[in-house]
Design a protein around this nucleic acid. Structure first.
Lengths: 162, 162
DNA sequence: GTGCATGCAAACCGTTTGCACTGAT
DNA sequence: ATCAGTGCAAACGGTTTGCATGCAC
């Protein structure tokens, strides 16, 4: 997924902060830049490491506190891949409807979109009288190519978990 | 969903134990009976409380260890409803393809099935060269009726979280 | 200057694990 | 008799929180 949206995402987050009358601190700026500067999924721990590389003063607590704001703004999504492993996905700013396929063989997450899934989601929510505010569709699978050819093609295309 | 499958689920779990050459202990029997005796979603903590009511000797560790076996057998599914809250769903023995709609208004989980979702899952997995071994489809939504009429109809139909 | 935001370290909390004992096979 | 299964309590690991200090506004 393209990272062309860095400036846009940044602007939208600044807007979010302003609307809530929250302050733009140095730490928040560093964390925000790191998050919108990648299109990879990342863990809170990775985000801490990357942020500290730019500014040693960034603490773990602030990373968690800022991740909360980022998810509340809708620009980043929390992705629970099971077994207590949570990764964050910065690609919702520009692809708000993608889903995830988790490869058990190589531990990568492949993103995919499906018009049909969206349509079915609409149908189901209408049938049950709901307005869907969040969706989580995760398929966990094993790689056919690995089994038949001994190599997993998603090793290059996917994104690593954690 | 009907709880008519209690005997069947029990038989299938005993088969699972036998195939793995695992032992049927008193504690495992109690936990199994409790799990297959309800059609509600439950937390590990609730399962511990219910089990201890029948047999004081059941420990938290054994509950967790048995839950692992139950999920591995495919008869029970772990449902991560976010915020670190995990509930277990005993209804997979007879409805292995249902999905979940979580109502933000009343905190209930409504189960639904969709043929079309299963077909789309097949399509996506074929497209990406995967064999799907697990699926997680959760829709989180707000209740239209609550907004327009002031009451949530799922309050009676759904199952409580946690 | 005001009071939100921060770093630090301790607390938290659901889950897992090491160990010596128990009991199903 | 064997060794998988157990209860207990300590450990674990990611996340949150209380508090004194710092800094955006």
């Amino acid at each position: 997924m393209a990272r062309s949206g860095k400036a846009g995402a940044t602007r939208r987050f600044l807007e979010f902060l302003r609307r809530r009358r929250l302050r733009l601190t140095g730490q928040r700026r560093v964390i925000m830049d790191v998050v919108f500067g990648t299109d990879r999924h990342f863990t809170a721990d990775e985000l801490l490491a990357w942020s500290r590389r730019r500014d040693r003063s960034v603490s773990r607590a602030t990373v968690y506190r800022t991740l909360l704001l980022l998810t509340q703004s809708g620009l980043v999504r929390e992705l629970d891949v099971g077994r207590g492993c949570v990764v964050y996905d910065p690609n919702y700013a520009h692809h708000p409807h993608h889903h995830h396929l988790i490869c058990q063989d190589c531990q990568r997450i492949v993103e995919f979109e499906s018009e049909a899934f969206s349509r079915l989601e609409d149908e189901v929510s209408r049938r049950l009288g709901f307005t869907v505010v969040a969706r989580r569709l995760q398929l966990t699978g094993t790689c056919d190519a690995l089994r038949t050819r001994g190599e997993c093609p998603h090793r290059s295309r996917g994104r690593r978990v954690g």
